[in-house]
Write a protein that binds this DNA or RNA. Structure first.
Length: 160
DNA sequence: CCCTGATTCGC
DNA sequence: GCGAATCAGG
């Protein structure tokens, strides 16, 4: 490969994840934080992509930071289907409804994979990653890596 | 005061 | 087109 001008390019993979996270209800800050970009970049890209809007400055049904609403019916996506092959990483194509779609690594790279663990009912992520995505944290651990990419996003199991 | 989201301008 | 800055609202 002879080209390596752009460090962070919006590849379909990243855009896919971007939309995925956005659709899931993750705050722009969180998405941008994970991808290593600012919330402005995320929201800008999303806007340009023609995605839907969520919480406009004007009153448009509060979102409450993507709080998982309770559903009356729990289909229970059979976590058994999330039995991923050991030793093999979960790719985007291998993602299932009962799989934790938590992007790890740099989207666009062969190293990029998902958690692949069994996600909790009505939740796109597993118990551990769910807390990471819906964390109410504010300000804080901005882990934006500059220069060399590779934000170890595999940090979970946090215990205060 | 803080955070989230949209919009706009500049590069 | 991407990124950052700015503005608006909750």
């Amino acid at each position: 490969m002879s080209d390596a001008t752009s460090a962070v390019e919006w590849t379909p993979d990243r855009i896919k994840v971007l939309i995925a996270l956005w659709e899931e209800g993750l705050p722009t800050s969180e998405i941008g934080r994970r991808l290593g970009v600012t919330k402005n970049s995320v929201v800008g890209k999303v806007h340009r992509l023609g995605l839907k809007k969520r919480q406009s400055p004007i009153r448009q049904t509060s979102v409450t930071t993507a709080q998982p609403k309770k559903v009356k019916k729990a289909p229970t996506p059979s976590p058994t289907a999330a039995t991923l092959p050991s030793g093999d990483v979960v790719r985007l194509e291998e993602l299932t409804n009962a799989m934790c779609c938590w992007p790890e690594g740099e989207p666009g790279t062969p190293e990029f994979h998902f958690c692949g663990k069994a996600s909790v009912p009505d939740k796109p992520y597993c118990d551990a990653h769910c807390a990471r995505a819906y964390v109410k944290v504010s300000k804080d651990k901005k882990r934006i890596v500059s220069g060399s990419v590779a934000p170890k996003v595999s940090n979970d199991t946090e215990a205060a």
